[in-house]
Design a protein around this nucleic acid. Sequence first.
DNA 1: AAACCGTTGACGGA
DNA 2: TCCGTCAACGGTTT
Length: 545
Amino acid sequence: MATGSNSLIWFRKGLRVHDNPALEHASKASSGSMYPVFVIDPRYMEPDPSAFSPGSSRAGVNRIRFLLESLKDLDSGLKKLGSRLLVLRGEPGEVLVRCLQEWKVKRLCFEYDTDPYYQALDFKVKEYASSVGVEVFSPVSHTLFNPTDIIQKNGGKAPLSYQSFLKIAGEPSCAESELLMSYSSLPPIGDVGSIGVSEVPTLEELGYREDEQDEWTPFRGGESEALKRLNNSISDKAWVANFEKPKGDPSAFLKPATTVLSPYLKFGCLSSRYFYQCLQRVYKDVKKHTSPPVSLLGQLLWREFFYTTAFGTRNFDKMKGNPICKQIPWKEDHDMLAAWRDGKTGYPWIDAIMVQLLKWGWMHHLARHSVACFLTRGDLFIHWEQGRDVFERLLIDSDWAINNGNWMWLSCSSFFYQYNRIYSPVSFGKKYDPDGKYIRHFLPVLKDMPKQYIYEPWTAPLSVQTKAKCIVGKDYPKPMVMHDAASKECKRKMGEAYALNKKMNGNIGDDDLKDLRRKLETDEESNIRNQRPKLNQVLKYLMRF
DNA sequence: AAACCGTTGACGGA
DNA sequence: TCCGTCAACGGTTT
């Protein structure tokens, strides 16, 4: 049995003081000390020079910086209350065990986490804690609902459509409850003994260089920044009341069309429950307002939907062995993947979005749709898992459940199945931004391209390209595929893959997929051959002039 | 078996 | 800006 009445609050997500039940519980260590801990996990934070962009193998340097800023802000929030953040390094499970022993912790508090990584880690930590008689308090406070409750209410299975989710979910319990937003003080830190603790490190101290990235994300991490952003957004009541997600402009970058609260929700710098209550207050004050799925509240509930579905589905982050995922013979093509990832597809709309991702770690939701559709079912027919990996690493708001769910959505692997609806890499962006301001900003090489060619620079006469100082094929790549032909091929492949999934009733093995892949590729070749007569007809037609 | 629905497609026309 | 058409999916409801 551990002695004393010390408590330890282990921060992972939930990097905030406001509405933090784990912190609240830990702070009730009446006569003892409270140790606020964050563990820097090398698996997540160690620089990886071989990665395709600055950062670690799992996180781009923008997200690492956002996290450090969030920790710094949490630390100063705790310091105002007479406490501070203790930063440790190492494998979190091992580090935790050492802390529990050395500090004679009686009560261990941390926010419940549904991500598989934490499910496994937390299981081990809880097992150890109970073996030595440490009380564990692990509340659900990252989401409005407890995914376990929703799944149970739905008969043991996660709801697979947003509407059925809404029906089952109903009102969250936080709708009525009062949230603890601040403290007058927190218990003091105890003696840290032989455990090496530090202040929040800088990027340099972690082994990154400030000059690694030529443009950084404009979004600053931290609870203070989150609350400022939230207040900014909700102070415009008319804007909140009329918010309709699909009508937002994905090309707006100086002033994004959305709240950009996602990174703060991801790290828990902002409590989703506080956000919920703020929205409800605005809705009560206005006569008329939009509703889910398109409203701001609807956005918050999408997050709940994906958290629930992800938690209730085996192998949610894979195609194979995932019971809700269509089995599709996606292509393996490293060069094509790299061209997409590095913003070198030759489609300025697509490339500008990918550059915004590299530089900012954030893009508008519809911009994400454009590039995800292009990579998978729209043009390149590359596996959604590979696009998912790129987003997961680079987005400052990347969230395991939401990212995987949306990649399945966009690739028509689950949730959404109308694979004939394909975003055009040319016209989709053009309808929001006909002048191409967004492209000119993120792809300066095209800044002098006349607007009538900016979405399809390969169609510009050479004299125009010369004048714009941008020769296609030299200064900017030629399009890697022709969208009309590529999307047609993709539709055909999706049709065949869907037919096989239907025929096999979802039980598709590796061999079935391999056979289909071979068949699709053979058909593709013969389709190209059959296009030759058509080409001749076009030539004949042109000869008449 | 048929009707209906689904956060956000492209295109052309009014 | 809003509408119908295009071609047409799976899942749910009737």
